[in-house]
């Protein structure tokens, strides 16, 4: 079995994001980067499935040379190989899906595991688009039935079940948890409550340096970067006016009743 996992490089989720003076982008000074947190969860699941099924795990990132750092981390966490698709500027979800389609056609995995959304553009599109372009079934928002503090989670059991032809996935939906079975090959996007990702262990970080990391270009893949959605600029959010501190429950309720008139 082969599992492809996408690992996008994004600004660390605790970063304070500020817009540059021209409103054309964000200020990158002092920012740190990480694997998109949802992709970390996808990778963790892939590594667990690998333990169960003797699978090969291939990590893919589309980005600049800097994304090599995230791919090395993915290798240290347990991916066997990595592929960097080198692009100079960020791509929209549609381009990313076309690139990933070309990679899937080369690699022929049984399963593609992806984050449900990238925490920079918050688009939540690429997995669904990739599934569509491949003509594969999709299961979005994979989750676990048990809590993330359960025994199953402590034992690092995979939450997604796979056999030769099918995968069984629990999905987090409006109204509860839905279980679906889907034919492989398939694309699965993961939500927060699927697992708790591990940190790479130091010896594995060293070993990861020897694992294969290939670079390809859009030309190699025969994909052009025609965005369907273009970002024209950024603007700050409207400011909220400063609030007040109250000293007691009495004062709070008085204010809510008489000043804000919401109680």
């Amino acid at each position: 079995m082969k599992i492809l996992v996408t690992t996008k490089r994004v600004e660390h989720y605790e970063s304070k994001i500020r817009i540059n003076a021209e409103g054309t982008g964000i200020v990158t000074d002092g920012l740190t980067y990480m694997i998109n947190p949802f992709d970390e969860i996808a990778l963790e699941e892939a590594v667990r499935l690998k333990g169960e099924h003797d699978a090969e795990v291939v990590a893919v990132s589309i980005g600049s040379d800097d994304a090599t750092q995230q791919l090395r981390t993915a290798l240290a966490i347990g991916a066997d190989r990595a592929i960097l698709v080198k692009v100079d500027q960020p791509l929209d979800s549609d381009c990313a899906a076309h690139v990933l389609k070309a990679i899937v056609e080369r690699e022929e995995p049984n399963l593609v595991l992806m984050g449900k959304q990238a925490i920079d553009d918050d688009a939540n599109q690429t997995a669904q688009l990739l599934a569509e372009y491949l003509g594969w079934p999709q299961a979005t928002f994979a989750a676990k039935t048990e809590s993330l503090e359960s025994e199953a989670e402590k034992q690092k059991e995979p939450a997604i079940e796979v056999d030769d032809d099918t995968a069984t996935v629990v999905r987090e939906i409006d109204g509860g948890l839905e279980t679906v079975e889907l034919d492989l090959p398939a694309v699965i996007s993961v939500d927060l409550r699927l697992n708790v990702p591990r940190y790479p262990a130091l010896p594995n970080i060293i070993k990861a340096k020897k694992k294969p990391l290939d670079e390809v270009t859009l030309d190699d893949l025969g994909v052009s970067a025609n965005a369907k959605v273009t970002v024209l600029g950024y603007e700050p959010l409207p400011e909220r006016k400063a609030g007040v501190t109250v000293e007691s429950v009495q004062e709070l309720l008085d204010k809510l009743q008489n000043e804000a008139k919401v109680l």
Partner: peptide, 20 residues
């Protein structure tokens, strides 16, 4: 006909154009 949407967990608003 362009759109505003929150990005980076709603830290900022992006103005986007759908080209199709």
């Amino acid at each position: 006909g362009t759109f505003k949407r929150p990005v980076w967990a709603g830290s900022v608003i992006a103005r986007v154009r759908v080209e199709t």
